[in-house]
Design a protein around this nucleic acid. Structure first.
Lengths: 207, 207
DNA sequence: TTGCATATTGTTCCTTGGGACAGTCACACA
DNA sequence: TGTGTGACTGTCCCAAGGAACAATATGCAA
């Protein structure tokens, strides 16, 4: 089992043919006749796999589906595979983060190469995403006050300043600060800042 | 003066025509008959502007020139403008960071829109790049020892640990640490970590 | 009403960070 | 040989972070 390929195409004979080729290469395959069919199935984001997507399909178009998936936070790589490639559509798709854009008919070599790249890429980002997810989860457990303290800590404020800004005492800030490093499960201020930076919580100007 | 557009195309009549159109729109224009001509001129990276680039040109091709410029650290936005757009070339160009990929003939509206987007994008990244450049400059003034201390500081190590790892005393580390915050011109550990993170100096795993 | 979470604050003690002041040693360069 | 720089180290002292032990007040849910 090397991964699950989601094939979205309205042409049933094409779906059947591509499914056969992909299964021969060792992949699992799920086929969908429309974008909505895939949305309804809401494929697992974290499992190895990718989406093979036609551009022109009845109902929601390929790029439309791409937009939806992005909105939903999906990170399944998308490979477009279409018989009608025009430059603006290609550009938009790639800019929106599509893994590749291929034209029918496609050689097995090209297709499998693209899929392999997609898998590698997905793999590389999965771990990273997992860590960020963990951070966000921990962050969500902070109370409002703790979160305020967190924000000021990672901006380099010292307890005295934080206490002043929040209209409380240094002692109280210490208590919250303790809770923050506890809940975020870090061992140093440096880790906390690093996390905040990765989550885009620090202004690019900042200092 | 809204910006300087570098037009690279082997077709002189095209260069002349596009130059006229761009100047009408208020842009400055520099034209080049080949990729090497542009490389020789080595256009200013920080000035507002972008590159209008044909794909098929004698000698170094458009995508080849793009690669070269990327290697050289150029950040001038590149807009491809070609009469022969094929999907693989389009995909590669956009993936490599091209701002847009247009086909000849191009309407003034499309072209000027693309240029405007390129300028906005360049503007947004220029400030960010400037800051990073400043950081790198400061970083370069650190001595070897200071740099070692820097690396350990931003990983959350405390002076005692740093001293142990470097086989020196806590007092010495303090001295280097002082130099580091001095030379990097920051006011807190948080800032230091933030900078290190932005410069990609912290492992994505790290902790 | 009772129990829990949250926010708050205090005292004491220890560790860590950081400034001030001072000094040694090695090495490269004029 | 004198000068400068970088690395190294020491003492004294103060500021800041953090743990331990303790306590009060509020509001919400079982």
């Amino acid at each position: 089992m090397r991964g699950l390929i989601h094939v979205v195409d309205d042409d049933m004979s094409f779906r059947t043919a591509i499914e056969r080729r992909l299964k021969l290469a060792g992949y699992q395959v799920a086929t969908y006749a429309s974008a909505h069919d895939l949305l309804d199935a809401s494929p697992d984001d974290d499992q190895p796999g990718c989406i093979l997507l036609d551009v022109r399909i009845p109902g929601l178009s390929g790029p439309d589906l791409q937009s939806r998936l992005i909105e939903q936070g999906s990170t399944l790589p998308i490979i477009f595979l279409t018989g009608h490639a025009d430059t603006p559509t290609t550009v938009r798709a790639i800019k929106a983060g599509a893994e590749d854009f291929l034209t029918k008919p496609v050689s097995s070599e090209l297709l499998l190469d693209a899929i392999e790249r997609a898998m590698v890429h997905q793999n590389a980002t999965r771990a990273q995403r997992g860590r960020l997810e963990t951070f966000r989860t921990h962050l969500a457990t902070l109370t409002h006050r703790e979160r305020q303290v967190f924000d000021l800590i990672v901006r380099g404020k010292i307890n005295k300043q934080i206490a002043h800004e929040l209209g409380t005492t240094e002692r109280t800030v210490k208590a919250h600060r303790h809770q923050v490093i506890e809940k975020m499960q870090v061992h140093s201020l440096a880790e906390l800042v690093s996390i905040a930076e990765r989550l885009g919580m620090l202004d690019t100007n900042g200092h």
